[in-house]
């Protein structure tokens, strides 16, 4: 049976620590754009932890929400691409083929989650920072759109290892870098087609909802909202 990779983000666990952000940079060879470019809105974070303030001092709270590519089933970014650089792959991933990308950036506009990032210049790694690069992940050149892949290089490796041993990928044995790093275990990754997988069971949680669900993009990430404390517990 085909895999359908999905994720659950448990907002009750997320502490906003951003371990996922740097883990993603390290795993996926994201360029550091530098202060000047960051000031111009070119910082690249495939996963970001959105922070929203609620209320005013002193009755103030914060909502953290990790946002990464939602790997939509009906991804608005895909159809608009003239060269099929953005398309749905066989695992239900919203794939981005860098070599096909000509840089219209239309996908970035069509994406309602703003999780697509563009290489405005050739990425630079000042020597010897290039030694940190992950050889399993291709580098993107100037003019190319990129985005979260659910660490497709890890998925590929796990699939070929499983295939060699003629077994399915065991639930929990495969994680993208963000989920692996997350101290609080707020990010749960797995196969939605396997009803016994942790991600499939958590996706069915009554706490669950999708981000901008009403747009109908069928995102494969489920957000579990925070569990409220009731005064009756007192």
């Amino acid at each position: 049976m085909a895999y359908r990779w999905g994720m659950v983000v448990d907002l009750d666990r997320c502490t906003g620590c951003e371990a996922c952000v740097t883990a993603c940079h390290a795993e996926n060879n994201l360029p550091t754009v530098g202060a000047d470019e960051a000031a111009r809105g070119r910082a690249m974070h495939w996963i970001r932890v959105e922070r929203y303030w609620e209320g005013e001092f002193p009755d103030v709270r914060v909502k953290f929400r990790p946002v990464l590519c939602q790997q939509c089933g009906n991804a608005p970014c895909e159809a608009v691409c003239p060269t099929y650089a953005s398309h749905q792959n066989e695992d239900g991933l919203n794939a981005q083929v860098y070599n096909r990308c000509i840089g219209t950036r239309y996908c970035g506009n069509a994406c309602m989650y703003n999780v697509r990032f563009f290489n405005f210049f050739h990425p630079q790694w000042e020597k010897p920072l290039q030694l940190q690069l992950n050889p399993d992940v291709s580098l993107r050149e100037s003019g190319v759109m990129e985005k979260c892949t659910f660490c497709v290089q890890r998925i590929k490796a796990a699939k070929s290892a499983a295939k060699a041993e003629d077994r399915a990928i065991a639930d929990g044995s495969l994680q993208p870098a963000c989920a692996q790093a997350c101290p609080a275990g707020a990010l749960v990754f797995g196969d939605l087609n396997d009803p016994e997988s942790r991600v499939a069971r958590l996706s069915a949680s009554p706490r669950g909802s999708k981000l901008l669900e009403d747009l109908g993009a069928e995102p494969k990430i489920t957000y579990l909202h925070r569990q409220g404390w009731h005064e009756s517990n007192a």
Partner: peptide, 15 residues
């Protein structure tokens, strides 16, 4: 030569 980044477009205003 230098890349489209010399223009003012950015994330998320790609156009």
């Amino acid at each position: 030569w230098y890349g489209i980044g010399v223009a003012g477009i950015n994330w998320p205003i790609f156009w």
